[in-house]
Structures are given as C-alpha cells and as structure tokens.
C-alpha cells in the first residue's frame, strides 16, 4: 500500500480529523499531552504503545466518549465542543469498534445492526434491514442474523460489531484493540474483515498490537508512550529503523 503514488495521493487528500494541542488529565494524571495529529481522507493509521500510554483515550476523544480539556479536535469540519448537536453529528460520521464488542445482548444480530439507522438516520425498517443483510454478507455471517449475540463466538461477535458500525455508513472507523479479547484462532477472521475494509478505502484509526495488520494496510504507524506521540512513520521504516529508544524497546518486547 505504501507506494509512492499512493503516498502522493494521500498528501493531496483533505484532512478529516485534526487534533491541535490536545491535552487531557484524569484527576492529576496527565494522560494525553500536546497531541497534534492530522488524518487524511482514506488514510489508515495504526496506533501502538505500551498499556496506559493513552492510545485508547486518544481515539475515544475523537468521538467524545472521553472529554479533552485543552486543544481542538475537528472531525469532518465540525469542532468538538459541549454542544450535544455537534457531538451527535460527529458520532453519525464516526463508527467505533470496541475491544469487548459491546453488542446489545437483548437484541438479535439484525436488530443490533438496524437500530441506529432506524432511530438515528430515520431510515425505513425495510431499507435498514436490506443494508444490514448486505453488510452481514460482507463480514460472512448472514446466516446468524436472527440469533442473539450470546449465541455467537467472539470472532463472530466482533465481525457483527464491525458490520453494526458500518451500517451507519460512517466516513471514519475507529478500532479500539478489536482483537485483544479474542481467542487466538479467531483473530484472523476479524483482521481479514478489517483488511478488506481498508482496501476499500475507508479512513481508519486502529489501536492494535497486530503488527502484521500494520504492515499489510497501514499508511502510518504511530507509537505512543506516556501520553505523547513519540514516533510516527510509514510501516516499513517504522519497523526496520525505529529512531527513538522507547520505540526500539517496545518493538523489541513485542516482536521477539
């Protein structure tokens, strides 16, 4: 992916997410310090770093699941503020996939998918179900549509969660450690869906330690430590020649 033509194309593309001097504290703990980040339309970013480095908090700030205290976050031209209308507008454009799936256990798979299109986008039920079935086919589990989440395996649940986020036709997808809660044999089926999504041109920010995934699709890998962006580069350079000592230490620990 990271060939020269593609890189040039990206450089010309408009930014869909801009973070300027973002700071956040949990009480006294400085969890994000002076984050600056531009995400281009169609760009795929992988965020990695040791636990507690603030990478989940960073992407959760983008759709306001967490509130930042300083700096500006602009998503798709809308500046995040306390205005509920702004927040809801951004959440309609940003899909999110969680580590623990967070499917709604009292609704069937199909109802999980159609809920937001029907209630947030006011889509007629029939159309929403059509879209949902199409997406379930894409994540390769259309036969599970009438089951409940508790009857599916972890990998299947996570694929449903991806389809659920896609149902809103988002411009941007955020992935918060989507494979960390999965049994090893199920990681691949989820990553395959994500790779496919990336190839289709979705703008993605993905917190993950799956370095194979980063090599396959990422335009940029970002390494975070202690609330800062320590280093960022295209994947080949990032893995082959890490510059910062902390990056080297981290990569040494996870790549063996």
């Amino acid at each position: 992916m990271a060939n020269a033509a593609h890189a040039q194309e990206l450089a010309k593309a408009p930014s869909v997410i801009t973070l300027r001097g973002v700071n956040k504290w949990y009480g006294q703990f400085h969890v994000l310090s002076d984050i600056n980040l531009d995400v281009k339309l169609g760009e795929k970013i992988v965020v990695c770093g040791p636990s507690g480095s603030g990478k989940s908090t960073l992407i959760r700030c983008i759709n306001r699941l967490e509130e930042h205290q300083q700096g500006d976050i602009v998503v798709d031209g809308v500046t995040l503020s306390n205005d509920v209308k702004n927040i809801e507008a951004i959440r309609r454009e940003v899909g999110m996939v969680f580590q623990s799936f967070n499917l709604f256990p009292h609704l069937t798979i199909l109802e999980n998918l159609t809920l937001a299109p029907i209630w947030v986008k006011k889509m007629p039920k029939k159309d929403a179900e059509e879209v949902a079935m199409g997406l379930l086919k894409r994540v390769r589990i259309p036969e599970q549509a009438s089951k409940y989440p508790g009857q599916l395996s972890g990998g299947q649940q996570q694929r449903v969660a991806i389809a659920r986020a896609l149902c809103m036709r988002p411009k941007i997808m955020l992935f918060d450690e989507p494979t960390s809660a999965l049994d090893p044999e199920m990681v691949k089926e989820v990553l395959d869906v994500m790779i496919e999504l990336a190839r289709e041109g979705m703008t993605m920010i993905c917190v993950t330690h799956e370095m194979g995934f980063a090599r396959a699709v990422a335009d940029r890998v970002i390494f975070m430590d202690r609330g800062e962006i320590v280093e960022q580069n295209e994947p080949e350079e990032f893995f082959a020649h890490p510059k910062n000592e902390r990056t080297k230490l981290f990569l040494g620990q996870i790549l063996h």
Binding site: E88, M96, F98, S100, N102, P105, A116, W119, V120, R164
Partner: peptide
Amino acid sequence: KGQFEAADAMGLNYPQKTLLIILPQ
C-alpha cells in the same frame, strides 16, 4: 459501561439510549 458507550458511539440520543438499550436490559 460498554453498553452505554456503544449506544453513545452510534449517535443515539439520551431518550433513545435509555428506552432502547438501557431500560430493557
């Protein structure tokens, strides 16, 4: 907490979140 967050992330407003996701469970 994930149930609240998932509902929020989908853009449901407070009454929708409460009536469709939280109270039934």
